[in-house]
Write a protein that binds this DNA or RNA. Structure first.
Length: 454
RNA sequence: GUGGAUGUAGCUCAGUUGGUUAGAGCGCUGGAUUGUGGUUCCAGAGGUCGCCGGUUCAAAACCGGUCUUCCACCCCA
C-alpha cells in the first residue's frame, strides 16, 4: 500500500455530518448579523506581509504563516545573508505574502483601500478561515473560522451596546449559556498611569490577565520580574481585589484612579454602556472584569470576551474598540469596534453539551429505489416534481440489489423510500415507505408531495 | 518556540521477561432472504505494528532520530 495521505498539523477535514452542524452555526450567526444591518464582505486568504507584520505584537509575527515567493527566489539572495542564518531577516527576502491571521486587520486594509466606495458608518460581517502557526491543542487549531462583525467610522458607544445585543441574540439562538466579560483599555491605561508605570501598560495587563488562572502571588511575581517597581505593584493590589456589582467596582476604581484623565474617560464609557444595557432587554450577564486585558495591542477602548459557562474551553468570542487601526494604512481618525465569534470552539462547545438540533441531521428526505430502465423512466418525472416542490430527494443511480439500496437509505438516514414497480406503474401510483415505522402506503403523486412536504 | 505523553486492521483497543503464523469488538464484503433496510445466523476480505536507522541469532516490544495526535507553558478564537 502506498503511504497514507494526510493533512497538515492542526488542520481538519469536515464530513457531511459535521458540515450540517457547522452550517447550522454559520447560518445562525449570519442571520443575526443581517438582522442588525451588517453586510457581508470577503478578503483574500493571503495578504502582503507588510499588511500583516507588526499588527499582532511580537508573538503574532511568529505565528504568521509566510508564503514563499514564486520562481527562483533563493538565487536572488546574497551569500552573506544566507550565511547569516537569520530566519527573520531572510524571511523578508524570500517571502512577501502571508496567510491572514485574523479578519480585523484585512478589514482595516479593505476600508482604507475602498474608502471612496464605502458609506460610513460601515457595518460589515465577514466569515472566513484564518491561519496561525500555533502549536495545536484542544480547541486550538492552525486553520479555523472567525465570524467577525465590525462597525467602522462611528465613535458612538451605541455600537458597543449593539454588539453585546448581537452576542446575546446569537447565543440565545444557539442555546449556549455565556457570560460577557468587559473591560476598557482606557481604564487599564489609567491604572498604569496612577501607579506611575504609564508606559508599561502592556506588561501590566498581560500579567493581571492571568489572575484567575495562576493566582495573585504569581501575578505579583511576574510583575516584579518584568521590572515593575515594587511600590507600583503595591499600589495595584486594591485594584486586583475589587469585588461587587459592576456599579460598585466602577465607583471604587474611580476613586483609585481619580487623578488619571484617560482613566476617568474609560469609566465614563463603561457607565454609558451599562446604562444602555439596563434599559434594553439583554438577558446575557455582562460583567465588568478589570483583569481582562486581551493581547492584541490595537485595542483602545472597550474590550470584550465571551465565555461559555458550562464548558472549559477559553473564550469563544472576543473583540473591542480600535481607534486608529486604519491609521497605519494611512487613514486617520476612523474609529471602529468589532467582535469575532470563534465558530470552531462554538462547535466544540455545542458538541460537548449536545446542543445540535436532531432534525438538522437529515438532508435527503426521500429516495427512489431503482428497479431498472422501465421503472426509472416512470420515476424520473415524479422525482423532478418533488424537487420542484422543494423536497430534497434522489434516486439510486444503479439498478442493484434492493438490499443495497435500502441499506443506502438507512445509512444516510433518509426517512422515506419510494418504490415503483409494475403494480404501481399500472395504477399510476407509488409505494411510500416510512423508514422509521416500516409502514407502507400506496399513494398518487399529489398525496406523495403532501406527505413529504410536512 | 520550550517541556511531557502517544501511535498496532476503516474505528476503539488487547498483545506477558524480546521467541514460531499479531488478536478481539465494531464496521466492511458475500450468503441465509432474486420487491424490503435497521435485528439474527454463517462465511470472507483487510496489518510495512507511524516512518527511518541501530542493538540482537531473533524486535510490535529495547535504543536514537523524525512525523502525528494529545497535555502543560507561551500566546490565543
Amino acid at each position: 500500500m502506498a503511504q497514507k495521505p494526510s493533512i497538515p498539523k492542526g488542520t481538519r477535514d469536515f464530513s457531511p455530518v459535521e458540515m450540517v452542524k457547522r452550517n447550522y452555526i454559520f447560518d445562525t450567526i449570519k442571520e443575526v448579523f443581517r438582522i442588525y444591518g451588517y453586510q457581508s464582505i470577503e478578503t483574500p486568504a493571503m495578504e502582503n506581509l507588510s499588511t500583516l507584520m507588526g499588527k499582532y505584537g511580537e508573538e503574532g509575527d511568529k505565528l504568521l504563516f509566510k508564503i514563499l515567493n514564486s520562481g527562483d527566489f533563493i538565487s536572488k539572495v546574497r551569500d552573506e545573508q544566507l550565511k547569516e542564518r537569520n530566519s527573520v531577516k531572510l524571511t523578508t527576502k524570500i517571502s512577501e505574502k502571508g496567510l491572514r491571521y485574523d479578519l480585523t486587520v484585512p478589514f482595516a486594509r479593505y476600508v482604507v483601500q475602498h474608502r471612496n466606495d464605502i458609506t460610513f458608518p460601515f457595518k460589515r460581517y465577514q466569515i472566513q478561515p484564518v491561519w496561525r502557526a500555533d502549536r495545536p491543542q484542544k480547541g486550538r487549531y492552525r486553520e479555523f473560522y472567525q465570524c467577525d462583525v465590525d462597525v467602522i467610522g462611528s465613535n458612538s458607544l451605541l455600537n458597543e451596546v449593539e454588539l453585546i445585543q448581537v452576542v446575546d441574540e446569537v447565543y440565545r439562538r444557539l442555546n449556549i449559556n455565556v457570560v460577557v466579560k468587559m473591560n476598557n483599555r482606557k481604564i487599564l491605561a489609567g491604572i498604569a498611569e496612577t501607579i506611575g508605570e504609564a508606559d508599561r501598560m502592556i506588561d501590566i495587563t498581560v500579567a493581571i490577565d492571568k489572575l484567575d488562572k495562576i493566582g495573585l502571588d504569581k501575578v505579583n511575581e511576574e510583575l516584579l520580574a518584568k521590572g515593575i517597581a515594587e511600590d507600583a505593584v503595591e499600589k495595584l493590589q486594591p485594584i486586583l481585589h475589587l469585588e461587587g456589582t459592576n456599579e460598585e467596582k466602577l465607583n471604587k476604581i474611580q476613586e483609585v484612579i481619580s487623578s488619571s484623565e484617560v482613566g476617568q474617560k474609560g469609566i465614563e464609557e463603561m457607565r454609558t454602556v451599562f446604562t444602555y444595557l439596563s434599559s434594553l432587554n439583554v438577558q446575557t450577564e455582562v460583567e465588568l472584569d478589570l483583569t481582562l486585558a486581551r493581547g492584541l495591542n490595537y485595542y483602545t477602548g472597550a474590550i470584550f470576551e465571551v465565555k461559555a459557562k458550562d464548558v472549559e474551553i477559553g473564550s469563544i468570542t472576543g473583540g473591542g474598540r480600535y481607534d486608529d487601526l486604519t491609521g497605519i494604512f494611512g487613514l486617520k481618525d476612523v474609529s471602529g469596534v468589532g467582535i469575532s465569534f470563534g465558530a470552531d470552539r462554538i462547535y466544540d462547545v455545542m458538541l460537548q453539551l449536545d446542543l445540535f438540533p436532531k432534525e438538522s441531521i437529515t438532508s435527503t428526505k426521500a429516495l427512489f429505489i431503482n428497479f431498472g430502465e422501465k421503472e426509472m423512466n416512470y420515476c424520473l418525472p415524479i422525482l423532478a416534481e418533488l424537487r420542484k416542490n422543494g423536497i430534497y430527494s434522489e434516486i439510486f443511480p444503479d439498478s442493484v440489489k434492493m438490499k443495497k439500496q435500502m441499506n443506502y437509505a438507512n445509512k444516510k438516514n433518509i426517512p422515506f423510500v419510494i418504490l415503483a414497480g409494475d403494480n404501481e406503474i399500472q395504477e399510476n401510483k407509488v409505494t411510500l415507505k416510512d423508514m422509521n415505522s416500516g409502514e407502507q402506503q400506496l399513494v398518487d403523486v399529489v398525496e406523495l408531495i403532501k406527505i413529504l412536504s410536512k
